[in-house]
């Protein structure tokens, strides 16, 4: 009984919300990249860059600088993916996989350069936590209303904004067009390459932000391997969310819940190693169970060549 209660406790829920955010931000990024037709397996690597630069920026200039540094690093790193996948038309999965490997080496190297060791940064102070005025005074709601990271409401706002941008703006329409049928978009004067680059860069910015959240708000410092495959989990969340921001939110919340569960439920008589991989198991189950129903953008993953000469 106690175990059951602990599965739905408010503390657990609060923890779930916190753990939803990194997956959500990265999944939101993936939505923009793939809506434009570019698969971004490199999300994990971009997140790694985000965790590192988030910590570095915070260490030297405070959390705002850290966040901006992470976003900038994500944009730069995703630009490399854009160059390879969009301009040079290298296989998008290969490009992403290679970027992930590069990110690991780069983070280690830079960490040595800055902090003398390979795998972790000094501790840092994160954002000043927010408290929601009325709710925080209700004792029962305190865990989810008090002391929350400002990045949590920001992430939720980005979901709404992302959905609006995709559905109600010229940019969103063109981005989706480019992901569905780039040739058709090209013939009516839509700049396919520009749109695809923007999609990939937005995904880089968001994945960088996801990394920053991990190192600034969760870990209070950079630690090698702290992304724990969340970049890939985010891709699963995007698929589960049917390539829409709001869907990605729902799916990310699912992963966040199991992530939180793995940290909280020590009462269960299961080795902690298995609780740790709960989100990974859920990812496999979700992919196995729901992918068939999802409909990816028609030109997702297919490079676009302006003019196939000769």
């Amino acid at each position: 009984m106690e175990t059951l209660a602990s599965l739905f406790s408010l503390a657990l829920l609060a923890s779930a919300v916190r753990l939803t955010v990194p997956v959500l931000l990265a999944a939101l990024g993936a939505v923009f990249s793939e809506r434009g037709g570019v698969i971004n397996i490199g999300l994990e690597g971009i997140m790694i860059m985000g965790t590192f630069f988030g910590a570095v920026g915070t260490y030297y200039g405070g959390p705002v600088v850290g966040l901006l540094a992470a976003v900038a690093a994500g944009v730069v790193f995703s630009a490399v993916h854009g160059l390879l996948a969009i301009t040079l038309r290298v296989d998008q999965i290969i490009s992403g996989v290679v970027l992930n490997m590069l990110a690991v080496g780069l983070a280690r190297f830079l960490n040595i350069m800055l902090f003398g060791v390979a795998t972790q940064s000094p501790g840092i102070r994160g954002f000043t936590p927010l408290s929601i005025p009325v709710l925080r005074d209700i004792p029962a709601l305190k865990p989810i209303a008090a002391g929350i990271s400002p990045l949590i409401p920001l992430a939720l706002a980005l979901v709404v904004a992302g959905h609006w941008v995709l559905v109600r703006t010229t940019f969103g329409l063109r981005l989706r067009a480019v992901g569905e049928n780039p040739l058709a978009a090209d013939t009516v004067g839509v700049n396919v390459f520009l749109m695809r680059y923007l999609g990939v860069l937005i995904s880089g910015a968001l994945a960088g932000m996801a990394g920053a959240y991990l190192s600034i708000e969760q870990g209070r410092g950079y630690l090698e391997g702290m992304t724990q495959g969340r970049g890939f989990i985010a891709l699963a969340a995007m698929i589960f969310g049917n390539w829409w921001p709001v869907g990605a939110l729902g799916a990310s919340a699912l992963f966040g819940y199991f992530d939180a569960l793995s940290l909280r439920v020590v009462a269960l008589n299961v080795p902690y190693q298995f609780l740790n991989v709960l989100p990974h198991i859920v990812t496999i189950l979700v992919l196995a169970g729901f992918v068939r129903r999802a409909r990816p953008p028609a030109a997702d993953g297919i490079p676009y060549a302006k003019e196939e000469q000769g």
Binding site: I41, I93, V97, Q228, G229, F232, I233, L235, A236, I239, V277, H280, I281, T283, I284, L287, A288, G289, V291, R292
Partner: peptide, 14 residues
């Protein structure tokens, strides 16, 4: 089931 092997194999690694 059409589950993408890039993601599932990485999960299997963990």
């Amino acid at each position: 089931r059409g589950a993408h092997e890039v993601i599932t194999t990485i999960m299997m690694n963990h």
